[in-house]
């Protein structure tokens, strides 16, 4: 089983692009049971085929089956950060194919499992919690003014970090991800990234509450001489949107079901409007 020509002769750039595209395609068969398991296997297929090129050799065929089986295990992680796991797994698989005594194959899946949590945590809070919120917060405010720049800008803000993170994650993972990982965990780096993402995301949402909801009250006291909205504005502008968000937040935290909340929003909106409380 010493045929390693395919592993060594393939250029690293080609391998990295394979991790890149295949980490993006990792959700293509997302399902309830093992989630992204087939996606992960698909990501490693070129690597595994290079490790075990000769299917006519029964020993290699068995090793290849074993490797395919190994990567059908449960997997779920942000696609962009999955490139790191793909790169690291591929380098471990190659090592294992070169010298079967050098690595315990169980360690590969153990590594995958231990990385899923932190990398999804960082990946989701960065891409879904921060980048997406800012990109579409800006996009919506431009689109509301009728500008096509809204969606264009939202996509530009979304795509650039996604490409950069995926590429460097694949590179870091493949070229010595183990060392990098230890550095990341020892220096509070994970906590730090989460902390920064948290602040930026929350402040952006705070700004969106003040700018994008725009609910006001048409109610007046004593024959229209006392406009309630003016009083509210003098205390705190956009107080009603803030209160509405607070109420909805409390209902969500109470565990009210999504379907009911949608009904409450629509029915509540119509009733409050007819009663002249909100406009």
């Amino acid at each position: 089983m010493a045929d390693n020509t395919a592993i060594e002769s393939t250029s690293k750039t080609k391998k990295l692009w394979q991790f890149f595209w295949r980490s993006w395609a990792i959700q293509d068969s997302w399902n309830y049971e093992r989630q992204m398991n087939m996606g992960f296997l698909y990501g490693l297929v070129p690597t595994l085929d290079r490790c075990y090129p000769d299917e006519s050799d029964p020993k290699q065929l068995e090793a290849k089956k074993e490797a395919y089986r190994r990567h059908m295990a449960f997997y779920n992680c942000t696609p962009q950060t999955s490139a790191f796991v793909l790169g690291l797994s591929a380098s471990m698989e190659e090592q294992y194919a070169r010298d079967r005594a050098s690595i315990n194959p169980d360690a590969i899946n153990a590594m995958k499992t231990s990385l899923m949590g932190p990398l999804s945590g960082i990946g989701d809070s960065f891409f879904q919690g921060t980048i997406r919120v800012i990109a579409f917060g800006l996009g919506v405010s431009l689109a509301q003014q009728g500008s096509i720049l809204g969606p264009v800008l939202a996509m530009a803000i979304s795509i650039i970090p996604s490409v950069l993170v995926t590429w460097f994650a694949a590179k870091l993972g493949y070229e010595g991800g183990n060392n990098f990982l230890q550095k990341l965990q020892s220096g509070n780096m994970m906590d730090r990234i989460m902390y920064v993402c948290g602040i930026v995301g929350l402040m952006a949402v705070g700004g969106m509450i003040a700018t994008l909801i725009g609910a006001t009250t048409p109610a007046t006291f004593s024959d229209g001489t006392l406009v309630i909205q003016d009083i509210l504005d003098s205390i705190m502008p956009q107080m009603i949107p803030l209160a509405l968000t607070g109420i909805m937040y409390a209902l969500i935290k109470k565990g009210v079901k999504t379907g009911w909340l949608l009904v409450i929003c629509i029915a509540g909106g119509i009733v409050l409007n007819v009663l002249g409380i909100l406009a």
Binding site: I209, T245, G246, L251, G269, I270, N273
Partner: peptide, 18 residues
């Protein structure tokens, strides 16, 4: 009324995010 409802729905969307 639906216009007001859409404002409350927006508040709901942001609250979900929060």
């Amino acid at each position: 009324g639906l216009n007001t409802a859409s404002q409350i729905l927006t508040a709901y969307g942001l609250a979900l995010l929060l």
